[in-house]
Nucleic acid binder design. Structure first.
Lengths: 339, 339
DNA sequence: TTGAAAGCGATACCAC
DNA sequence: GTGGTATCGCTTTCAA
């Protein structure tokens, strides 16, 4: 016999059934919204349940239905990721939506290196009904999970688009185009960019946006103005210094994220130049630093809560047997002092 | 009959038992590390389990034992909290420790306003074996959960210490003392402080540390140098401006967190003064901004991963029937350019 | 429309 | 040491 749960004593269907004068089967029907129960008996069941403070036992339900009512949220276990305020907000977006549908989010912080990492096993183990990945981990691992029938949603565009992975992402390309166009159309003649990590899709897309802006305005891109960064402050600063040394007449810089934009500004100041008077700067993300830094950083805001919410909704949709199309969320230019 | 689990087909004890030529009871014993099983049979069971790729069904176990193997991690649903990089790291610390013990972290993002908020019900509902709170929400709600027998650990010192809530926290008082002493002993004659929210224990403790430093160095505290902030950038900036207007000879400022320290520095610059030459600044937290800002922010580093890990360990200890003492984690002064 | 009853998979008591 | 089996609470077929 099991040790009595250390917490509360729980009401069961049996007690509700007794109190309402019906069978357990009927209790189940009523509590699960089955129409074909006489409304008076249904009423009695509901009252009894309320009076007894009934809470459904998820373990029992899971055992019976094969559905756990839980979704794993997998996040990469690296300081760089965890330290990024971005993910907290995404988590909130996911959690809120799932909560409404009475689904719990199980957090798994871990690298997902190989197909038989502990996490991968957890995920196939049936402890959860699906998994949302907060960064594109090793893509083939995710892929193999999908093949095994696990409902999966990835936040961020997968590299291999042919893979039938369901994903949601910010419109990085259009956002970057917005940013670059803003610089170009507000008088900048020579706009450089510090890209993100080009092995990541977000990095590529934001660079493409830079190109697209030039193209649409009929301006030729000078490859010499493109510096390949890695999302980090220090690196961006170094690259900017180099850029400015080679092209002293640069008057605008689009950094592929806010952290790098701060590095860019630091470099500009170090060269004794002013933002935005000498060089205008636009970032991407609109994180806290963008707001608190002086001068305030003009940047591209993404709907981060929305990203999480969209991922959760895609998951719900998969669980209902559908195959949701990828969702790409719009961005918005936030004007502050830097450009 | 249940709908077959959408994911993988699962091996059960029955199959292992058949393959190993033993009973299900024996399979259970072996897989749960019960010694008194002949080692050869045990071996057979283990081999069979591996060969069949057995994964334990948590729902079944939970139903049988009354233990879910899940801990709720409750975090306040406010932008200010979610945007704080701090919590992501704490989460990682918690998750890692629990994971090792095969316990899942269920994330609940929500305010926990009242004793019958949905979350409170979830928590008493037996869906989890315990709860870790990432901010002291309404303390009486937490208290009532404890009274109902739910194992609870709070990250952050509760206001009502007499309450028997298990908690872990950073040594805010000593950290603040360290910060203030650094300013005082490196030549500053007039050190002001921008406090955090004084209705929060962390706010109070950091202010106390400021006092303690003066006391231990035999310097009298000038109440006029204490400005009551609210952790935010803007507010800190405003307060600093006011402080400097009234006391132009302030040459050091301890801000109770890094975000405010940035506000302080912004204000100092706005007044045309230099950091640290005219005014030295020390923050608290050592977040990303402290590192990327120029000049680099001298600050107090807390062991954030450690905080999460400590909370998780306290939880494990409670689950084993112990009553862990509060844990207070040490801090460290990180020297950069600002002081 | 309703109830009886057979599972779901693991555990733990009881008897051998 | 080991096996048989009742049990956890809910769902769902099957009959009535």
């Amino acid at each position: 016999m099991p040790v009595t749960s250390p917490t509360t004593f729980r009401t069961t269907y049996a007690e509700i059934a007794a109190k309402a004068g019906v069978s357990r089967a009927t209790v189940s029907r009523v509590l699960n919204g089955d129409d074909r129960v006489h409304s008076d008996r249904a009423q009695a069941v509901i009252e009894a349940a309320n009076k007894l403070g009934y809470r459904t036992n998820r373990a029992a339900r899971a055992l019976s239905t094969g559905r756990t009512g839980q979704i794993a949220v997998v996040i990469d276990d690296s300081p760089a990721v965890l330290t990024d305020p971005f993910w907290g907000v995404v988590l909130a977006g996911i959690s809120r939506v799932l909560m409404v549908h009475d689904i719990h989010s199980v957090l798994m912080v871990s690298p997902l290196e190989s197909e038989d990492s502990p996490i991968a096993h957890y995920l196939e183990g049936g402890d959860v009904d699906g998994a949302i990945f907060l960064t594109v981990h090793q893509e083939h691992v995710v892929q193999s999970l999908v093949k095994k029938g696990l409902p999966v949603v990835v936040i961020g565009t997968p590299i291999d688009l042919k893979s039938e992975i369901v994903y949601v992402d910010t419109d990085n390309r259009l956002g970057a185009e917005l940013a670059t166009k803003h610089l170009l159309s507000s008088g900048c003649k020579k706009v450089a960019t510090i890209t993100g990590d080009i092995s990541a899709v977000a990095g590529i897309d934001r660079l493409e946006g830079y190109h697209a802006a030039h193209l649409s305005l009929g301006i030729e891109v000078n490859e010499d103005l493109i510096a390949h960064g890695d999302w980090s402050f220090e690196n961006a600063k170094t690259l900017t210094l180099r850029l400015l040394a080679r092209n002293p007449d640069i008057d605008g810089i689009f950094a592929a994220n806010d952290t790098m934009a701060l590095g860019v500004m630091a470099a500009i100041h170090e060269r004794g130049r002013m933002v935005p008077d000498h060089v205008a700067v636009v970032g991407f993300d609109d994180n806290l630093m963008a707001q608190t830094h002086r001068p305030g950083l003009t940047t591209i805001r993404q709907d981060i809560v929305g990203l999480g919410a969209a991922a959760a909704e895609s998951m719900l949709s998969i669980l209902q047997g559908e195959t949701p199309a990828p969702k790409i969320l719009p961005t918005e230019l936030i004007l502050r002092e830097s450009a």
